[in-house]
């Protein structure tokens, strides 16, 4: 093989290698983009789930923020800013965790409030019952007193010759 042939071959190999490299890069980029899009879609679906889960509407701001960040991630993905997309998605995952924690906390708070209200009801019932009890005892004693007072003269009358 001549030197020229070797150079030509070298050039061809180089070109082919470059082309292969470039193709692999594009393929890798395309796969990453799909992954990111899938994650964005998944998180968007989970936002809807979180909204349904938030029966007490305790995380409206956080969900709005989450949506905004997902939109931002989508926008960045469109611009092929994948590192930033990943950063934003990491943030949205944490935000989703926060939302779940807050929803659970709000439900527990509501549950606690309900328990508190129930307890207050029971205490109010106790107070009412105590009042009724006191009133009942008062009435009973009053009647007993009246009866004793009525029985005494009757007994004296009966004992009288």
């Amino acid at each position: 093989m001549t030197a020229r042939s070797r150079r030509t071959l070298h050039l061809i190999v180089t070109v082919v290698a470059c082309a292969a490299f470039g193709a692999s890069q594009r393929a890798a980029r395309a796969g990453e983009e799909d992954d990111l899009q899938r994650e964005i879609d998944t998180q968007r679906v989970s936002v809807a789930d979180l909204e349904r889960l938030d029966e007490l509407k305790a995380t409206g701001d956080e969900i709005t923020q989450l949506r905004s960040w997902l939109d931002e991630a989508w926008s960045l993905r469109s611009k092929h800013e994948y590192d930033q997309v990943r950063e934003v998605l990491e943030r949205t995952r944490k935000q989703a965790d926060l939302i779940r924690a807050k929803i659970t906390a709000s439900k527990l708070r509501a549950q606690a409030n309900a328990r508190e209200a129930g307890l207050a009801d029971v205490r109010a019932r106790i107070a009412r019952t105590q009042k009724s009890l006191a009133e009942t005892i008062r009435k009973k004693k009053a009647i007993e007193g009246n009866e004793k007072a009525a029985e005494k003269p009757a007994a004296e009358k009966g004992a009288a010759p």
Binding site: A105, L108, A112
Partner: peptide
Amino acid sequence: MANIKLKTALALAEQEQMKAKIQTL
């Protein structure tokens, strides 16, 4: 990110408090 994490930690702490409160109640 710091806000999100701290808020999450606070929410989890609130969960605990609420659980304890519910138990007490």
